[in-house]
């Protein structure tokens, strides 16, 4: 089952750590967001393959925006 990861809050995409196609494990950092003057890692909540990673460094994500899909 695919797991979609969405932004929880408005943030800048500070760093993209993983790339589409990579295998990720639960707890791995996918991207690091910057918001509230903090670097906030977005972590995988399941183990699988990154089917999509749709953000780039410098993007601004809004609450609810899709960041990645893990399959």
């Amino acid at each position: 089952m695919a797991e979609e990861i969405h932004a929880e809050m408005v943030a800048n995409v500070w760093k993209v750590v993983k790339a589409t196609g990579e295998t990720v494990e639960e707890g791995d950092t996918l991207v690091i967001l910057e918001s509230m003057k903090m670097e906030i890692p977005v972590v995988a909540e399941s183990t699988g393959v990154l089917k999509e990673l749709v953000v780039n460094e410098g993007d601004v994500v809004q609450e609810g925006d899709l960041i990645a899909v893990i399959e």
């Binding site: 929880e8 809050m9 918001s35 509230m36 903090m38 906030i40 890692p41 972590v43």
Partner: peptide, 8 residues
């Protein structure tokens, strides 16, 4: 928990 919503 700062990991989620920066702990806000």
């Amino acid at each position: 928990n700062p990991l989620r919503l920066g702990g806000c």
